[in-house]
Design a binder for these strands. Sequence first.
DNA 1: GCCATTTTTTCCAATATGTGGAACATAATT
DNA 2: AATTATGTTCCACATATTGGAAAAAATGGC
Lengths: 265, 265
Amino acid sequence: MEERDGIGASNSNTGTLGKAVAVLELVAMAERPMRFTDIFGRAGQPRGTLHRQLSHLVEEGLLELNADHCYEPGLRLLKLASRTWMRSDLRRFAAPHLQALHELTGETVHLGILKGAEIIYLDKVESRQAVRMASQIGRASPAYCTGIGKAALAALPADMLGPLLDGAELRRFTPQTITDRDALEAELAAIRSAGHAFDREEHEAGICCVAAPIVDAGHSLVGGISVTGPAYRVGSALADWAPQVRRAAQSVTDELAARLGPGGT
Amino acid sequence: MEERDGIGASNSNTGTLGKAVAVLELVAMAERPMRFTDIFGRAGQPRGTLHRQLSHLVEEGLLELNADHCYEPGLRLLKLASRTWMRSDLRRFAAPHLQALHELTGETVHLGILKGAEIIYLDKVESRQAVRMASQIGRASPAYCTGIGKAALAALPADMLGPLLDGAELRRFTPQTITDRDALEAELAAIRSAGHAFDREEHEAGICCVAAPIVDAGHSLVGGISVTGPAYRVGSALADWAPQVRRAAQSVTDELAARLGPGGT
DNA sequence: GCCATTTTTTCCAATATGTGGAACATAATT
DNA sequence: AATTATGTTCCACATATTGGAAAAAATGGC
């Protein structure tokens, strides 16, 4: 099969919808607003088709077309995501534990969830009430070079981990990034036996964290909790916090399990 | 034209996509996870069709189908929305002003934007680093009974305001909610001349706010900033803060205008 | 544990819907 | 004013969607 330019390579059979959301993602994930031709260049879709797709996305409020012919993500995405976030069981169960960890450490605490080979951040408790309040929520980072990501990968059964790593490119972000498959497997084994993972400036220079995995029944959902801070400040403390992070993650795991067992929906 | 049950009443000609996102919204906006039959009952779509739509949405990651056959909003929505939020010019320009207002008042500060007859909250600076950190972001509230909403409505030219109010039902939320069209028009006129709006427990009992409008060129984008707090605490202070709120909103308005004029993109 | 019932999923001919090349507008640039 | 770049519309054709009905799972009662 000949592969078209740009997007849509992975979409197998979601038909019209798949193409439309591929366009949506292309626009939403771009760094800057795109004009029609910019999108046309990357979408690998005929003019007429692309134009209609964009029109429909705009009419649905998923995109917006501003005065200078630039397509931008629409507000309806926010509205939809807001409900997703508020209703997440994982987030609700984890929230008090995140808060407790923050009060213990004084550092930033993250809750993330594994989606494919990426970690998507679901919640965050931050020290300074910074302006960029919820900036990380919904953000996606590669799993193999983040604390939560490695903890989650390590918690995955072998038959799910293998294919996932096969498909992932181990790109270098910093000098510390693990870019070798074997080294990563060794690291995951170490994490498995320790019960927690460290990120030693592997994703972002100067930023370290300690993380522990959260697992739902049948590994249908895997994620983790982390405590993050600047290397100079948390360097030695991370190891001390590990047990508490492990305990918090374990509590959430237990609560997720209990939800289906004794109680209701 | 006979109108079908449930969703899709307003979708005129977005074809397949429109129906799919209508289903998506139905599921995402529901209070609790829905099983197939629940959705079937409200979607007004034949079984086979609905099933394929849901399958596609799941395959695209916009919905997720958990172990007990319940459809839930998918993580991809968060990822998409995250970029929407981070890239918003309005949010970026407003952020420092929100922060300043929060430091001045010590109360919660909101940034919202008018979308149809609803206000969608774009940002928030909160006093206590509460657990419900970003809970309001992306949330939608009716315009006619919120401070930002009324400020935004008042800033709208008559030819846009009329149709908008015609389509909106003035539902009562509290004893103070304005449910009469004429009373609302009078209130908007008062807001127009004052330059700021008060919400005196009209949406939520015990909660008051003062708000001022933000307007982009040609009213293509209308929103506002508000300072919110419990009635017993902010009751008398709101009026004092009004000038500062007005000034902040005006600054953002100016910055939005300046963006297109002299400078860059 | 087995049968009756509900709920979910699959199938396929008919057809409405999306496709995409090319012609047509419109705005920007020389 | 002419030219180029950009955005929008059109329509014969093919494909994806439709929706009824029937099969397969799951659920619940006895």
